[in-house]
């Protein structure tokens, strides 16, 4: 991944539980490793658990600024976003990764930033998909979820990220079997399949078989 060609802002949205948060964190880490400055914004107002904030320490160590609700992980389910979140759209000197909450309900929160993103016109909005999730099992169902998100957010996706997995049980075959599905989604949507993601343990064997494969370190999960 050559970060010089990246758009300044990368937005990850999708069906909830599709893996957006872990991908967003890994993506931000990758941008940082390439020598670029990057902020990450957690706009998730839907999911109370397993959030970007769980990776706060890791991000801080790497020098990546995390913008999230002051309420996140504090037991208060007030779906409010901090004023600070505007800084990632206004500060054009740095890259920004935006982690949007699941489904159309989560994507609603993105809407207020869309006019600024559209004006700057230097963003990529990626649709994260997982074939092994209910309600996104077929390309047609997945497109339905995608259109709902676009409608709620007021912005169109520009690419697809295939994160098809069944958690710890994921096999190489599971990933390979998802490629046709991911291509179908991208083709129905009329946008490119940007990359496929896999857990680090599957990366070595699959990297020669899948174009643009990105290894993912799981940063946000339960420990039992």
């Amino acid at each position: 991944m050559d970060c010089k060609d990246l758009k300044r802002v990368t937005i990850f949205a999708g069906h909830y539980g599709s893996g957006k948060t872990n991908i967003a964190i890994n993506y931000a880490l990758k941008i940082k490793d390439s020598g670029e400055e990057v902020d990450i914004a957690d706009l998730d107002i839907v999911n109370p658990y397993f959030r970007t904030k769980d990776a706060e320490t890791l991000l801080a160590e790497k020098g990546i600024r995390l913008v999230s609700s002051v309420m996140a992980n504090t037991n208060v389910d007030t779906p409010a976003l901090p004023a600070e979140a505007y800084s990632v759209v206004h500060d054009k000197s740095k890259h920004a990764v935006i982690d949007v909450g699941g489904d159309d309900r989560g994507a609603l929160a993105l809407g207020r930033y869309v006019p600024y993103l559209a004006e700057e016109d230097n963003y990529e909005m990626l649709f994260v998909i997982n074939k092994y999730r209910f309600l996104t099992g077929s390309p047609e169902e997945t497109i339905e979820v995608m259109r709902e998100i676009e409608f709620a957010a007021g912005v169109r996706f520009t690419g697809v990220v295939n994160n098809s997995n069944v958690g710890d049980d994921t096999s190489e075959e599971d990933v390979l079997d998802s490629l046709d599905y991911a291509e179908s989604v991208a083709s129905l949507a009329g946008i490119p399949l940007r990359f496929t993601t896999v857990r680090e343990n599957l990366y070595e064997n699959l990297k020669t078989k899948i174009n643009g494969l990105m290894p993912i370190k799981i940063c946000v999960r339960q420990s039992f």
């Binding site: 539980g17 997982n130 092994y132 209910f134 099992g137 069944v166 049980d169 096999s171 599971d174």
Partner: peptide
């Protein structure tokens, strides 16, 4: 081909 789905507990109870 996996016959498994990745689900949240809440979703799984609803589907069940």
């Amino acid at each position: 081909m996996s016959d498994k789905k990745l689900m949240k507990g809440n979703e799984a109870m609803a589907e069940a």
